[in-house]
Design a protein around this nucleic acid. Structure first.
Lengths: 121, 121
DNA sequence: CAAGTAGGTAAGTATCCACTAACCTTAAGC
DNA sequence: GCTTAAGGTTAGTGGATACTTACCTACTTG
């Protein structure tokens, strides 16, 4: 599964609120929808998006349907961010190293020539 | 900073591509935009969104402007997912515990009464 | 089977958003 | 000063999307 649908799913505040409510355990749609100002069908549509993204799973129990967070799907996203984070940190260390060890000229940029205050406008 | 703008920023594939290109170090807008099929102004707009979200930082060097990933902003999002992940895991453990230790009836749902194949439509 | 309950689906709509083209701003070099 | 280079900003537009109402489906219980 790619990250795209997961991140799109998380970008909507209502969907994130849904996930927050499922954070500590499964819940049927009705109970879930009761906590929102949007209608139940809207919640159903959000749940479909979340499920297609692999962020929640559902399980029928009689006429109800319990939704819960899909740990595996969430973990995938977590790993992506962790990897990204590692790369950024490495790049940052490289950068500071290069600055710390001044191989060539210390990189003075040719700033402030006159600081003309452009009075005309 | 809230997660909302960060997640919205990451939901767009072009913006994620931009971040990927900045993953290993800073880069001026022109060079950045050269790698995309969208115009440079579009990249500028995406950079503004990313910056407002706290995911990138910029630094002027002469007439250029170098953008780089903002490690702190990224970390914030990382932590959010990690916390969330921990909660979900805990909830999952609780659940399996409850299922493993059958305090009451083993929860047989009252399924398949006749499996009528609803031929009429 | 009829009635009730829980929830998914479809059609329509208003809003948002990513994009482009044109323009404006700032710095550097002659 | 003028010119060039690099980017940010604005106005406008087509397509995505979150919502509602109305309807349909599946399961359970009398």
């Amino acid at each position: 599964m790619t990250y795209q649908p997961k991140l799109v799913a998380l970008a909507d505040p209502t969907r994130r609120a849904i996930l927050e409510r499922l954070r500590h355990g499964a819940m049927p749609v009705g109970k879930l929808a009761a906590g929102f100002d949007v209608t139940r069908p809207a919640v159903s549509q959000h749940l479909k998006i979340l499920q297609d993204a692999g962020l929640v799973r559902s399980q029928r129990v009689g006429t109800s349907r319990f939704y819960s967070v899909d740990a595996a799907g969430l973990d995938e996203l977590r790993r992506y961010l962790d990897h990204f984070w590692a790369d950024v940190l490495a790049a940052f260390r490289n950068e500071t190293e290069r600055v710390t060890a001044p191989a060539k000229k210390p990189g003075r940029t040719i700033r402030q020539r006159k600081a003309k205050k452009h009075g005309k406008r």
